[in-house]
Nucleic acid binder design. Structure first.
Length: 602
DNA sequence: ACGCTCGCATCAGGTGGGAAACGG
DNA sequence: CCGTTTCCCACCTGATGCGAGCGT
């Protein structure tokens, strides 16, 4: 995939562009000036985000799949002294001087009030149904001033954590988020340049404490926090085509409690333990040099996904969260206690974690991880494409209908936030994401949920990696091949050229891409399944059993009903009989067919 | 001889657990 | 004293380097 000649040429040009970009203060994380643009400067940390209250279903909600019933309304809790808009964003000259009032300054703030429905076949009642595939979604024609739509790619996984109140470890040296933020963006101008970054703001004005098995408020939050609150995506600035081409992952974003950290500030966001935070995605239109384009009507758009709220901790408090982390985070595989049981399927059916397994399988769904890891690793519930993690947080161009998981049945769960003005805030201060819509289906069909998620990730997730399984499967999973194909380590700012599409000139391919994603099938799929079944080595399994002895039990004994993590592979298999694909005897050759069955058989 | 593929060893970095240290 | 933070540990994965084997 990356080996193409055309590709290399595009890469070189991209590299040059990257070099140019590095000069841009806006993107060079190492440049203080650049940093200052987006880092918190005097803008108090005292900005709070109050989750949107449950809203009445919007008209769109009529079509559960099309848009989530959740409300718009994410509001930003603004202490008297705080500015209304993301304070941490000190954009200086780049941003309109007068406040960041969405309407006034051309900055829009969106919450996940709208989520792109997945499409028919969605297993979650609230979402399923007539959800239109992406193609049917009203996506404004790309162009300057257009409002973007953002999908939280791994929303299902986030929801799993959210149900237990997500916790994120913060350490002095910085700890990556898990789940991490991963988005798909649509509606940007193909040729315009944008900076994409995440800001983490206080979600509420309280200090939290884990007591009696649950989180309770304990005094007021310390608003004196200081330090960087923004993480600029390494590939910023880049064209809209580039951002829309594949998922945008923030897997390398690190959280720290070390205010004095002087290194890697561009990769670290400073938080305070026991405080609740709300990540927000910002998309700022800039000039090619990374300077905000003052001629643009819509300069900045912000998106908030309530389910990504989390409480920063230095040590996990809720064992349910710990278990979820262990179950889904490949790097924590050593702590899994049920590793053996996970691989009860015939050797031939065991999908080896490696090379696709974990890291690539980051954020996998519990059940999925055991069986279709490689396939599902990504977004669905979770898994981000591998290269996003290790090569550059960014995906590979979605060439062959890999763009989106929302294929066919549109099962792909992309939660989409569209232009929703910041207004309409609910007075509710509840920090809980309103899961009403989900709870029903979520708890009731949790299993399916995960499964579906898994299936979804496939195409998309894989697309992230230059050495995506899809790209290499045809020739086998040789780890070697995968490695060799990995994107050459490039400068952080290097725009990642799309192997198949030149950058950014090929932006016109984005559209077709979307269409592909909607139609979603790729010949690659079959080959993928055929080659992605490397068996888990017994040796590995054995070594793992040792680790399993260290098993840790949840003090609260998460009930099976509400602890997704407890769902075992076998459970999934049985529970998803409909989705025959999950059968232990599922030959890898059935792969894709089975794979899709997940979607088609809610 | 040269280039390529493959396997292995090594290293870096990520993970949660647990004990020790810290601080109110 | 108790809650929180820090540090170290074992484990895991991916990346990288090296040498062996093979074909041209």
């Amino acid at each position: 995939m990356l080996g193409g000649e055309g590709e290399s040429s595009s890469f070189s040009s991209a590299k040059e562009a990257a070099d140019e970009r590095r000069k841009s203060p806006a993107v060079d994380g190492g440049d203080p000036a650049a940093q200052s643009r987006y880092t918190e400067h005097g803008m108090g940390p005292d900005r709070y985000y109050i989750p949107p209250a449950v809203s009445k279903q919007s008209p769109e909600s009529a079509n559960p799949c099309a848009f989530l019933p959740y409300t718009p309304g994410g509001t930003v809790y603004t202490p008297p002294s705080a500015g209304r808009y993301p304070s941490s964003l000190h954009l200086g000259s780049v941003l309109p001087p007068a406040g960041f009032s969405p309407s006034a300054a051309g900055r829009s703030h969106f919450t996940s009030a709208y989520q792109l429905g997945q499409s028919p076949g969605c297993i979650y009642p609230p979402y399923t149904g007539s959800a239109p595939p992406l193609s049917n979604v009203t996506v404004p024609a790309a162009g300057p001033g257009m409002r973007a739509q953002v999908y939280l790619c791994n929303r299902p996984l986030w929801l799993k954590f959210h149900r237990h109140q997500t916790e994120m470890i913060i350490t002095k040296q910085g700890r990556r988020m898990f789940p991490f933020l991963s988005f798909n963006i649509a509606g940007l101008s193909l040729t315009a340049h944008y900076n994409v970054f995440v800001e983490v703001v206080l979600a509420d004005p309280n200090h939290w404490r884990f007591q009696g098995g649950k989180w309770v408020t304990c005094g007021k939050a310390d608003n004196s926090s200081q330090g960087n609150k923004v993480y600029i995506h390494p590939e910023s600035p880049n064209t809209g085509a580039h951002w829309m081409r594949q998922e945008i992952s923030f897997s390398k974003l690190k959280l720290t409690n070390n205010k004095g950290t002087s290194h890697n500030t561009s990769q670290m966001i400073v938080l305070q333990s026991l405080h609740k935070y709300q990540p927000r995605l910002h998309i700022v239109e800039v000039t090619e040099d990374g300077v905000e384009d003052i001629n643009s009507d819509v300069k900045t758009q912000s998106f908030t996904f309530p389910e990504t709220q989390f409480i920063a901790v230095t040590a996990y408090q809720n064992t349910d969260i710990t278990q979820l982390k262990i179950d889904h985070n490949p790097f924590a595989k050593g702590f899994r206690d049920n590793y053996d049981s996970m691989y009860t399927a015939p050797e031939s059916d065991r999908l080896t974690p490696s090379p696709t397994d974990s890291p690539r399988a980051h954020q996998i769904v519990p059940g999925a991880r055991y069986a279709m890891q490689p396939l599902f690793q990504d977004q669905f519930v979770n898994n981000p494409p591998q290269n996003r993690f290790y090569n550059s947080e960014r995906a590979v161009p979605q060439t062959t209908s890999l763009l989106s998981p929302q294929t066919e049945d549109g099962v792909s769960q992309r939660w989409f936030v569209t232009s929703m003005q910041q207004g309409g805030n609910s007075s509710s201060t509840s920090n809980k994401l309103d899961l009403t819509p989900y709870e029903g289906d979520y708890s009731g069909s949790l299993l399916p949920y995960g499964i579906k998620s898994l299936s979804m990730q496939t195409s998309h997730a894989l697309s992230y990696y230059p050495d995506s399984p899809f790209t290499t499967m045809s020739t086998g999973w040789g780890s070697r091949a995968a490695y060799q194909r990995k994107v050459t380590p490039s400068l952080p700012w290097s725009p990642r050229p799309s192997p198949t599409a030149g950058f950014p000139e090929d932006s016109d391919k984005v559209k077709p891409q979307i269409e592909e994603e909607v139609n979603g099938t790729g010949g690659l799929h079959s080959s993928w399944t055929e080659t992605q079944a490397p068996a888990l080595s017994l040796e590995k399994a054995n070594s793992y059993s040792t680790a399993c002895k260290r098993r840790r039990l949840s003090l609260h004994g998460p009930s099976a009903e509400d602890s997704p993590a407890d769902i075992k592979c076998e459970d999934l298999a049985s529970a998803t009989t409909n989705s025959s694909s999950y059968s232990k005897e599922t030959p890898s050759s059935k792969g894709m067919a089975a794979y899709y069955s997940f979607y088609t058989n809610p």
